[in-house]
Design a protein around this nucleic acid. Structure first.
Lengths: 263, 263
DNA sequence: TCGAAACGAGAGCACTGCTCTCGAAACCAA
DNA sequence: TTGGTTTCGAGAGCAGTGCTCTCGTTTCGA
């Protein structure tokens, strides 16, 4: 209403600067983003951009915030395609959505989940959007525990400090989720992000060739673990129920036989 | 023997350049590494460094190779402190060693496991040292399968292409390890790296405060999964056959009750 | 011993982020 | 409508960067 013409054109120009910068980042990476190149493309002179962003880092921060929000939106949308009670389906869909976004926007992914570009400071503006992404898997876990899809019989040992951390996280975003499941959830989530980073940053080159199918396998395997936890040690590979701990060294050793095909 | 004086001083100077560059990277990050600053500290003029490294990227590549080798050495040393049959202990020690190195050398960790700094090319010189790191957990898994510490009864479904990838990896570095365990191993390893990256890059700020204890918890939890796989679905939460399992839906729903302490 | 190779110094190019100044335009209140 | 204030873009300039090229000097190897 009371938006003056100047304010409107300012908002538009700010958005335009971000759009061009985003394209440059997507094309050549964040480290080689040049303010001068952006303003050149806008027909402006380099000093003019400082009316809109105080520094190059501030522009990058704006891009980071946008990136967090778009990947969060993608995750939320994928999550919403499944029935709320379909814990496994929601998990798989969310993980794939994040990876798909990452593969479509690798430089933006690197911008937010790779090494921090400037020094080490994470500006306060970025923590809320960053949190928004993590809330998706957390909600899935909350629902999964509530409807029984996630088993809660696992027991963990840890320090008082970690239990406090988990309690705080529970009170903020994961009501009803016991420590063991909360820790398991963080575990599988960091696994998803680690797998995406490993793939995108080339650490699986020449090892995995069918990236799509491999990620799908990993996400399903991790999902199974998320829902059920680790197998009980007192019921080991042996068929025995009578206790029977794992028979260490009872399996024929395959050491020293060199490379050999396996099942 | 036949090393001329010139060759010797050249090797020394090359090493000195790398040392100074490494210090600069550790202090201010890789993105702000300046060749001119390095040569200035050496008392040389900027153009002289090009007699030793063809470009800034080539210097960074040398640092990357060194970083891979030092973290690999740290992992190998930690692995060697445990008995070979102690699969769980070796796993935990190796994971902690990598994290300890990462925390002691965060910028170098970011250099090799963060977003690739230059464009996307991973020079051929870096793939062998990078592989060296991954061989440590692979050896642990090979030994664990051989001596029965790792259960092999899990079954996975995936494509022919992924099975081929796994078979190739098995023939190269993991003899005797079935697909399911190999995939599980890659899963927990990417989890470890994901957890380290998450912590180092600040994604757990204000969520986890006792980083050390939390990482230890996660590594132990992941280690349990690595050894045993996920719990069996065919023996579900129902209180089937003597084995005290989780009663699905028999637990009072905690949704909507807000924050509540959990076991 | 002598030609060739390697080396360091220096100047220079094109580029960067960022600061400062200055005149014009837009805003808002009297 | 007028006049003071704020906002804006342009331009020049500073310090810094990676990298190239040239030019004497030093060292090597036949």
């Amino acid at each position: 209403m009371t938006t003056t013409a100047r304010a409107r054109v300012r908002a538009e120009l700010t958005e335009e600067i971000k759009a061009i910068a985003r394209r440059h980042v997507a094309e050549q990476g964040a480290s080689s983003l040049s303010l001068r190149a952006v303003t050149r493309e806008l027909g402006m002179v380099s000093s003019a951009v400082y009316r809109y962003f105080a520094s190059r880092d501030e522009l990058l921060t704006a891009l980071i915030v946008d990136a967090y929000n778009t990947v969060a939106a993608a995750a939320e949308a994928a999550d919403a395609t499944k029935r709320r009670s379909d814990t496994r389906g929601r998990w798989i869909a969310t993980a794939h959505a994040v990876r798909d976004w990452a593969k479509a926007n690798p430089e933006e992914y690197a911008l937010i989940y790779g090494s921090p570009v400037p020094g080490y400071q994470a500006p306060a503006d970025t923590i809320d959007p960053a949190l928004r992404v993590s809330l998706v898997p957390l909600r899935i876990i909350v629902d999964g525990v509530a409807n029984g899809a996630i088993t809660t019989d696992e027991r963990i040992e840890t320090t008082r400090t970690v239990r406090d951390d988990l309690a705080q996280l529970r009170s903020l975003a994961a009501p009803g989720v016991p420590d063991s499941v909360l820790s398991r959830g963080l575990l599988v989530w960091t696994q998803v992000m680690g797998a995406i980073s490993y793939e995108l940053f080339g650490h699986l080159h020449n090892v995995v060739h069918d990236d799509d199918a491999f990620f799908d396998l990993q996400v399903r395997q991790a999902g199974r673990y998320l829902l059920r936890g680790a197998a009980n040690p007192s019921r080991p590979a042996r068929a025995a129920r009578g206790g029977a701990a794992t028979p260490v060294m009872a399996v024929p050793s395959t050491r020293g036989r060199g490379a050999r095909a396996a099942p």
